[in-house]
């Protein structure tokens, strides 16, 4: 059984959450031509009209770009650690794309497969993801090529389908059910589509991408493909699934914090050894690493691709690279 909610009521619901002190994130228009997931200061700021693919992702809710882990004080003969742990307020992502939500499921595995990352888990537990099924796509979207789709449920706590000026609401997890209460139905949307205007065509076969990457590890293809790559982190930082981080100490000589910040495999510094040796000595090796990680290493470990087909890497790349152009070349036989 599904339930419906009107646009007005959805905004009212958001306003209620905000009034209750919950942190609500959703797509907003920062300026002309720039939409981002950002904290909403009012329900009106939430973008509901038209298909919007924000330039960032909701991974920041659970894996912030900068996160202080603990503080320290340097005393005469010892170092004292300071617990910075604070309550993470309940946070809700509304209007996330299925490709954003699915990435959280991938991150859950990474942050819990051996060491259980309390910082991640704390935020994850406080987060409810209400996904909006895609009404459209653009030519950078390729969720269908990585086993997802415009209405995929993975990682979502609830799913909204836009129908007839309102939304059909379905709770997927217990968290979604609790948050939405009686508003949400339980069953799949009867009118859900698995193909149509909202569904990007299958642009490549991810198994073929993996096969090529494995078989052509030393192929000059990578260096040629990466010639245009400038080595910035725009692709990884706007990717919903990339999750590498760096640890830094920041402070003065007496006190400071240890923090983790996003890091990117595309930076030459990422693998630079103290000796000066760099095992990934050129941009080709770094580009290969990104594909390899997403299509070979992660799947080998966790059984699924570490790419949700959002297309953010290509949209944000200043020089037209990203997963899609490479995967289209190597993943089509």
């Amino acid at each position: 059984m599904s339930a419906r909610i009107s646009r007005e009521d959805l905004r009212k619901l958001v306003a209620e959450w905000l009034a209750a002190g919950k942190k609500v994130f959703g797509p907003v228009r920062v300026k002309a031509g720039l939409e981002l997931y950002a904290p909403l200061d009012s329900a009106e700021a939430l973008l509901l009209d038209g298909w919007i693919r924000p330039a960032n992702s909701i991974k920041e809710l659970v894996f912030p770009r900068h996160e202080a882990l603990y503080g320290y004080r340097i005393l005469k003969n010892r170092v004292e650690l300071v617990d910075l742990a604070a309550e993470i307020p309940e946070q809700i992502a509304i209007g996330a794309h299925p490709c954003d939500a699915a990435a959280l499921a991938a991150l859950d595995k990474v942050f819990n497969w051996d060491y259980r990352d309390e910082f991640y888990n704390r935020r994850r537990a406080a987060t409810t993801v209400i996904t909006m099924a895609c009404a459209a796509h653009d030519d950078q979207c390729f969720c269908t090529s990585v086993g997802l789709g415009p209405e995929a449920e993975r990682g979502s706590d609830a799913l909204l389908h836009e129908r007839d000026g309102g939304y059909e609401v379905r709770a997927i997890s217990e968290k979604g059910r609790i948050l939405l209460g009686g508003l949400a139905g339980e069953t799949a949307c009867p009118t859900a589509q698995t193909s149509g205007a909202n569904t990007p065509p299958r642009r490549f076969d991810s198994a073929q991408v993996a096969a090529f990457a494995k078989e052509h590890f030393e192929d000059p293809y990578w260096a040629e493909r990466a010639l245009a790559c400038l080595g910035c982190g725009a692709c990884t930082f706007t990717c919903p699934a990339c999750h590498c981080f760096d640890m830094v100490d920041e402070g003065n000589g007496r006190e400071g914090v240890r923090a983790r910040n996003w890091d990117a495999c595309q930076f030459p510094m990422f693998t630079l050894h103290a000796s000066g040796h760099n095992p990934r000595a050129n941009q080709g090796a770094r580009q290969r690493q990104r594909i390899y990680h997403k299509f070979v290493m992660y799947p080998d470990k966790f059984g699924e691709v570490l790419c949700t087909g959002c297309g953010n890497c290509s949209r944000n790349c200043p020089v037209g690279l990203g997963v899609l152009p490479a995967a289209t070349e190597i993943g089509n036989g």
């Binding site: 904290p39 996160e67 910075l84 604070a86």
Partner: peptide
């Protein structure tokens, strides 16, 4: 918010310049 999170104001003041 030193502990991170999505930071930033949603709407920036217009710079008042032509498109």
């Amino acid at each position: 918010d030193h502990r991170g999170g999505l930071v930033g104001q949603a709407v920036s003041p217009a710079t008042g310049r032509a498109g």
